[in-house]
Design a protein around this nucleic acid. Structure first.
Lengths: 175, 175
DNA sequence: CTGTTGTTTCTGTAATTACAGAAACAACAG
DNA sequence: CTGTTGTTTCTGTAATTACAGAAACAACAG
């Protein structure tokens, strides 16, 4: 596959961004390539296009699949796996947010809960215990909010997105 | 300052979480300490409590101030700076989200815009150009949504948070 | 002036991370 | 059986990152 300069830049920038977002550069580059590739690609094509070792592409694809950002598919008369990224940008955002929640947010809440319980018995000052509890409570509040919102339907999400700040005009009436 | 085991764990976990969130461990630990500290602390006290070099504490405090997570204050009759973290959890979340938006989201949008313009002239296939444009558009849509929502008042934020998924019950009527 | 406080910059080091490339395997088609 | 495809695991290396500690400096109180 031949990359035009702007396609190369897209992949490079996505790779940079990936490393800020906690995904390593190679993995983010593979995702970027699949994201803009018109057709599914095999692992070998990805190796050639990005100049990565096969082992790393294989591992990277696994990781992307675990994030549910990439799917493997088969083509008739070909034994090789063909990989595509999620085509719908909404699904992509959902997958990324969901992944981060599971890997970063929930473990933190869990750890905070453990610390909170531990603090009951080890002579931690009341003020400090209150701070820890408040931190835990607020994080849980945000998590609950997210869980509820994410359960809404796609059209509802779109409505809310388009509505933006105007949601405030509608709400007060109902209070 | 004496740390109980649970306070130590809080700081350690916060430090771990920090490294996942793109802040380095020391910086996250300093923040964790200030977050649960009942009273403002001087740089020296932080050094002692966390066993960090003074230079690193100094740099870390600078970084936390640039994130607006920590403020320096003065006390009568003392020439040293005393540091406190944001006390209000809502302000903290806002500061973190705002910081990440500026450092991770906006640069990406900027880069995408540049790639998008570049793609006009370098023979990038139409399909690929469309993908790039779609990616840019969706990211901008989310950013606009966030910008509008963040402009709402604090009580409105609280209302929305408590409302959670029930916001859906209110909206359809108005369509 | 001296002492205190804090910042910045540099050096060196330990730990971590991100890879390439090799090798061993597994699954399966023909 | 052989050839193809893909995965997993290992070794080695280069690059990066996160520090400690030193040193030089600045600002300022008294």
């Amino acid at each position: 596959m031949i990359l035009t300069p702007s396609m190369q830049n897209f992949i490079l920038h996505w790779g940079e961004m990936g490393s800020r977002w906690g995904v390593n550069r190679s993995v983010a580059q593979i995702h970027a390539l699949l994201h803009i590739a018109p057709d599914p690609m095999t692992a070998d094509e990805i190796c050639e296009t990005l100049n990565l070792a096969r082992s790393n592409v294989s591992t990277g694809l696994k990781e992307l699949q675990s994030w549910k950002l990439v799917k493997a598919s088969r083509q008739l008369g070909d034994r090789r796996d063909h990989f595509t990224s999620i085509r719908d940008m909404f699904d992509l955002v959902t997958a990324v947010v969901e992944g981060r929640r599971e890997r970063e947010f929930l473990p933190t809440i869990e750890a905070l809960r453990a610390v909170h319980d531990e603090a009951e018995a080890d002579g931690t000052p009341e003020k400090v215990k209150a701070r820890i509890k408040e931190t835990l409570d607020v994080m849980q509040m945000f998590d609950t909010w997210y869980a509820e919102i994410s359960r809404l339907s796609r059209p509802m999400h779109l409505t809310l997105l388009k509505l933006g700040g105007r949601v405030a005009r509608i709400l007060p009436k109902s209070k």
